[in-house]
Amino acid sequence: MNPPTPGDGGSQTVEQAARPLTRRTFLKGSAASALGIAAMAAALKPLLALERENLSVDAFLQKHYQELTPQELRRILDRLESECEQSRGIRPDIRDIRPREDTEFAYALNIGRCIGCRKCAHACIRENNQSRESDDDINMSYIRVLEMEKGGIDLETSDHYYDADQVPRAGKFYMPVQCQQCREAPCTKVCPVKATWQEDDGLVVVDYNWCIGCRYCMAACPYDARRFNYSRPKLSPDQINPCQSYLSNRLRPKGVVEKCTFCLHRTREGKYPACLEVCPTGARIFGNIRDPGSEINYILKNKRVYVLKEDVGTRPRFYYFFDK
């Protein structure tokens, strides 16, 4: 190759090379610009189908949950209720329920009793308004029940799609897994916008109106406890549970992460989580560990209790134990 040397004399300056603006170049330029604008408009055409709830100015300007005044929050709850009424045909009652004093919730699950019927996973989805394709679609349930080979706790041997009509099957045991409400929660640590945090009673919650949908929390969770709304949740009006709260089971927009909150809209008012109420074998124990007389405290003190994946340092508030 025979290269030109730097500063090669044959160069014109750009000013010399520039063509003067003639009628011809003007017309060519205009035609190209018009074509460009038309192509741009064509590319953006799908945006015409954006739903109105995605374009609300109020939602855009909304502050983080923890910075809202009671009046602001009231207005937001009203707005969410009417949005739901308009888009879903049913007006829910959305409340803001705060943690109770001197309360720290914990859950214990008796592996010896669980028969793998998956009623908890179904109850979860009915209670918490997750998206579903049909009534028995539990893909978005916060609870995954693992059917595992007896002889060890190797998650890799687990089957998530076993037939629940056949349970309990010989040689298998069952382990439901949901959010462990970790004391050292990796999910809240990694969230770039603090859209998920731990409340005073230990529950890890998400502000669905603040989440930017980066899904870093899902990558961080060692228990596969978080779900993402890849599309607008699919629910028919008769599937909607109208008793809702801001931080738990209200209808989520598309593009945000959701998770188990131990049904805080129930448990903060003294009720049990939906998964516990439906359990036919009494395998689930729930309560306040700061209450010395609670059953959960008795279990933690007296049974052979373990936590899942102790090695990852998350210090769960969800315990498993073996008992009759």
Partner: peptide, 26 residues
């Protein structure tokens, strides 16, 4: 990759709540 790109300002103080230095993403 964001589910809600229009909420990008949630990362920018003072409009947002930037989780720095906790989150490596920040």
């Amino acid at each position: 990759d964001l589910g809600h790109p229009e909420r990008f300002h949630h990362m920018i103080p003072p409009f947002g709540m930037f989780n720095w230095p906790g989150s490596i993403l920040s």
